[in-house]
Design a protein around this nucleic acid. Sequence first.
DNA 1: CAGTGGTCTAGACCACATG
DNA 2: ATGTGGTCTAGACCACTGG
Lengths: 249, 249
Amino acid sequence: MSPSHQNPIPAQKENKLPPWLSIYRTLKSEILTDELADDDRLPSEKQLCSRFSVTRMTVRRALDALQREGLVTARKGSGVYVNAKPTCYEINSGRRFIENVATHGYSVETKTLSVSRVSARADIAEKLGIKRGTRLVAIKRIRIIGGKPAFLNFKWMPAKRFPNFNKIYKINQSVSQVYGEHGIEEYHRVETRVSGGRATDDEARHLQLEVGAPLIRSQSLNSDSDGNRIEFSQGSWPLDSVEFIFPQD
Amino acid sequence: MSPSHQNPIPAQKENKLPPWLSIYRTLKSEILTDELADDDRLPSEKQLCSRFSVTRMTVRRALDALQREGLVTARKGSGVYVNAKPTCYEINSGRRFIENVATHGYSVETKTLSVSRVSARADIAEKLGIKRGTRLVAIKRIRIIGGKPAFLNFKWMPAKRFPNFNKIYKINQSVSQVYGEHGIEEYHRVETRVSGGRATDDEARHLQLEVGAPLIRSQSLNSDSDGNRIEFSQGSWPLDSVEFIFPQD
DNA sequence: CAGTGGTCTAGACCACATG
DNA sequence: ATGTGGTCTAGACCACTGG
């Protein structure tokens, strides 16, 4: 063995790209040009090693980058697979959720995970313009689009305003129907906020993600036609699955 | 040398935590409990190796996890530093960028990375309502807030509309001044879109993130007071650094 | 200059899935 | 049983920073 473990060919000094980066780019372009199609298995790490004349660690560095970008998924004992291109739902802030998604031809299913009474947390109380500790109706739901869990949703509403919430909601799990039965025919969006975050245990479980996986969260505040705030809603989406659209002016 | 390179103590089978994970958790708790304060330098990788009795690769696996979470930042040749708890900038869609951030008391610096002429890509042409291939002015900038790269920004504008772009922009790197000098006193936001994504090479380099790090991207379209679309703009933010606020109705 | 993180070689053992 | 990815050891050279 020579004293150096380095490549005996020290590579062109002009080519200053780290090997892992050029491997990454090569594989990425093969994925994006469909030389590697959706759900295809990549060559094994060992095969990639000999193809690119590097060790496994260098190949893995490139695969890690692809995986973080969501282009591939590694399955232990099986291989590394090309991910189907992420489905991205367009959420237009001017319309109701169901209209946003249904118009794109997806089947939407809503599963109510819980309906409960809680005391208002400080942040929610402030949004709704009520006192901290006021009784709220809290519902937790998961939206399933095309058979895949897509969206975890919490809503909080002043309980006093909706005495018959449970009875009416039970019928077809429609919040807007609850509103209608309580004399709220029209309501509108006051504000929407969009931010990033990392999946909590709860979010990860329901959305079938890893704990700490990147997310997009939306928060929105609705009021009735008299300007009374009636609902604060939060949603959590997998990072790559949604685009929010805000038409303005 | 023994035929095995493995640790001679094969570790308790009960403790099934991978070493890198327990190192990660140890360091994370030291950061979160302020044993390691903001801007502190962590012990060097070599020191951590001896502290935890592992090789550098194992330490680096743990540091990578911390870095992806945004808890620490590695500086080549210098060390690994604890990040100040993430600052989240509120971006209110009704106002200009500089107003959004400056009102929160941050210093904002803008660095123009390039100003060029390009042919309109199909997607940008569609947004701007022009033909594909039309000449555009493209600018690429990085916003530096409180000394840290915070926001990578691209803008595309029809070149024909701004014959003196370079000359005017050079003066104080102000796009709105370019607009003013070309007779556009007022312009307004037509639409904003917010979505998630993963850092490209370019984004990672400028925002000092890993390739594939989670991002929030915003796209916005501006038009002049006659409704002519004059600018398509895209921004990329580290996931945890921004909250978009959209007042509505 | 010495020290740091970034990258890489050349092996190894393990848990897991069944190409 | 074989092959896969997940993890690890024990070194090495490089570019960069100014601890």
